[in-house]
């Protein structure tokens, strides 16, 4: 394989890991209207969960159970789900922004645990020597990369098809109904908080799965892997691709991660070293600009929503109902 092809394989592997996170986020935001501001926290739980369960036993660490990788991956997913459950139970009966604030908080707290709970997470040193699944069966690193990519694409494909089936199921249609007109859904006697909780936990489990796969791919995990900027990157992927559309989520992941790495490459080649610091800041500003200007000028994203009206453009509910909804929830409490 040529150098470019080898790199492309590598790039697509990373992009498909992010695609899984974006698919999870799309279930939360695109289909259910839940704002998760702490993606990186759930990603970290999945990653550390997998690393601790699969890692080799070490005297200084509590973890290191040496489980087979798929089992550890599943464990990481479950742990992410539990973290989501704690946050969700506290906030999902309340006004939507409480979820945003709380998820933001849990991400910070998880980062602190990762950094400071040394006997579990290895602290700032991280966890080393983690097994890369089936790496020992391949002599050629490029071939291994290709096989890993194939496995990732298959995973993404399965998740995509499953989510498509889910959103077409009665449960999925309920999510949509709920998002469009909560009052009507409530009138139908649906337990709104429970349905939201299910969607939120499921989305976070997908995020956790991606975190575990990242660990499998890199073979190392440390708190540095979970900087807050990642949350913004994932959001930009969803927004660019168009929320409420699973295919859009995939396109967004590849596009945004591509722009991010490609602009880094271009900066290193075109910008004098003295200006790299500024160029880096501008690169991050682009994410902010993408988020804001998409909301303002192209609410449906690159691909747009397939059915049910634009996600950001306007609410389909009559204004009065919306406002009533607001004032009842205004104090932070819903009846």
């Amino acid at each position: 394989m040529t150098g470019l092809a080898i790199y492309l394989v590598f790039f697509l592997t990373v992009a498909s890991i992010y695609a899984i996170v974006v698919l999870g986020l799309n279930l939360q935001w695109g289909y259910t209207g839940l704002f998760n501001a702490g993606i990186v926290g759930f990603y970290a739980v999945g990653a550390y969960g997998t690393a601790i369960l699969a890692g080799p036993d070490r005297a200084a660490l509590i973890g290191g159970f040496g489980l087979p990788f798929p089992l550890a991956l599943f464990g990481g997913m479950v742990l992410s789900g539990i973290a989501a459950l704690i946050v969700g139970l506290a906030t999902l009966r309340l006004r939507g922004e409480y979820l945003a604030i709380t998820t933001f908080g849990i991400a910070i707290s998880i980062q602190l645990v990762a950094l400071n709970f040394e006997s579990l997470t290895g602290g700032a040193n991280g966890l080393v020597g983690l097994p890369r699944p089936f790496a020992d069966r391949f002599d050629d690193p490029d071939l291994y990369g290709l096989v890993f990519l194939a496995a990732m694409l298959a995973t993404v494909g399965i998740i995509y098809l499953a989510l498509e089936a889910v959103v077409r199921s009665p449960w999925g249609r309920l999510l949509n109904a709920l998002r469009e007109d909560e009052v009507a859904a409530r009138a139908l006697g649906k337990n709104i908080a429970a349905i939201r909780l299910q969607a939120f936990v499921l989305g976070c489990m997908l995020t956790g799965l991606a975190g575990g796969l990242y660990v499998g791919f890199i073979g190392f995990v440390s708190p540095l892997d979970f900087l807050p900027i990642l949350t913004f990157q994932i959001w930009a992927m969803l927004i660019v691709g168009g929320s409420g559309n699973n295919a859009g989520a995939l396109v967004g992941a590849v596009t945004v991660w591509g722009l991010w790495t490609m602009s880094g490459l271009l900066i290193s080649r075109l910008v004098p070293v003295g200006f790299h610091a500024q160029a880096g800041a501008i690169q991050t500003m682009l994410i902010g600009l993408v988020i804001v200007s998409t909301l303002l000028f192209r609410p449906q994203g690159m691909i747009g929503e397939r059915a049910g009206g634009a996600r950001f453009g306007r609410s389909n509910a009559p204004p009065v109902a919306k406002d009533r909804n607001w004032s009842t929830g205004g104090g932070g409490q819903q009846p």
């Binding site: 922004e97 913004f232 609410s315």
Partner: peptide, 30 residues
């Protein structure tokens, strides 16, 4: 204001503020 004028959901505004925050922080850095 444009988002309010469009009667966007409040979560859209929350999310937009997330983007604005990033812009301002990076502008200060710059």
């Amino acid at each position: 204001r444009p988002l309010r004028a469009r009667r966007s959901e409040s979560m859209t505004l929350v999310f937009a503020s997330f983007g604005v925050a990033l812009l301002v922080r990076m502008a200060v850095l710059l």
